[in-house]
Each structure stands twice: as C-alpha cells, then as structure tokens.
C-alpha cells in the first residue's frame, strides 16, 4: 500500500479503491471506518434486495449493503474473500459488501473529472460522483450519499 504522498497538496485526497462486480470503485478514505472480512449477515424481512442483512459490529447492529446489487450489477456471490467496508455517512454507519479492496490512492482533486452526462442512461450513473485514472485504469468514485438513500426516500 502506498504511504501518504509527501507532495500531496492541501487539495489532495486519499481514495480507497475496491472491486465491485468486476469494476474498480473508490471512496474518500475519510468516510471509511474500517475494513473487515465477510461474515454471514442476518437477513431482514421485506428489505430491499441489496440489503444483505445485519451483522454484529462489536455490539452494535450494522446494516450490510450489497454494493454490486445496489449498483445494478446483480447480487454478489459471497465467499470468504469478500470484504465489508464500514463507512460513515452523515449520521449512520453502514457496511458495504464488496469483492475486494485494492489500494489506497493519493490523488489531487484536480485529477478528478466529472462523469460524462449519462442522464439518458440507467440510474446507476448517479452513484458515481467523479472519475479518475490510476495506472491507466478508470476509477469510479462512489457517491456514497446517493448509494445509501435516506429513510424517507426508501420508506415512502
């Protein structure tokens, strides 16, 4: 893993990159609380399909979201190799089920570009807030707030 790049400017950010459904995504590392291995989740009745259930995170109940399913790429096949990224968004902590964690990437915010306007396309595009390139690979920066809808939105 790369250490913090000393040349990073004040506008630099660090991204945690990970694999979801064969694509490479990333998250601002500031929103990541911890990374842990997959444990079987207790399913919640009548929950949306992308909600895998809940697990015990040191005494608190953590909701697990299957990110691949959420992004419209079909439910993940879970195995020991899967990873849960515990993220904190605004007021809630949620576990994101992903295929694997790849790297920590220090980039400058100027290296981020807006995703092309794909409004005509399917809604999954709205889950990406920016794009960047690392070693020739395209990295999709997850729009975490969009991927984890608020209660009112979902309950309605």
């Amino acid at each position: 893993m790369s250490e913090q790049d000393k040349t990073t400017l004040s506008t630099g950010i660090e991204l945690l990159t990970f694999q979801v459904g064969g694509q490479e995504y990333a998250l601002d590392i500031m929103s990541v609380r911890e990374i842990r291995g997959w444990t079987k989740a207790t399913p919640l009745p009548h929950a949306p399909s992308f909600v895998r259930g809940v697990i015990n995170l040191r005494g608190t109940v953590l909701t697990i979201v299957d990110l691949a399913d959420r992004l419209g790429m079909g439910a993940a096949q879970t195995s020991e190799r899967n990873v849960i990224i515990v993220v904190h968004t605004g007021k809630e902590t949620v576990g994101l089920l992903v295929d694997a964690v790849s790297d920590i990437l220090a980039i400058n915010t100027t290296d981020l570009q807006d995703p092309p306007d794909m409004s005509a396309a399917e809604c999954e595009e709205s889950f990406v807030s920016a794009l960047t390139i690392s070693e020739g690979r395209m990295i999709r920066v997850l729009a975490i707030a969009a991927a984890l809808p608020t209660e009112s939105e979902e309950a309605a």
């Binding site: 949306p48 005494g59 608190t60 109940v61 209660e151 979902e154």
Partner: peptide, 10 residues
C-alpha cells in the same frame, strides 16, 4: 439493540 433505519423500518 436498535436497528438502523437506513432503509426504512423493516
């Protein structure tokens, strides 16, 4: 233990 209401109350 309380459940989060992230995706609505089950």
């Amino acid at each position: 233990k309380g459940l989060q209401n992230t995706f609505g109350r089950p």
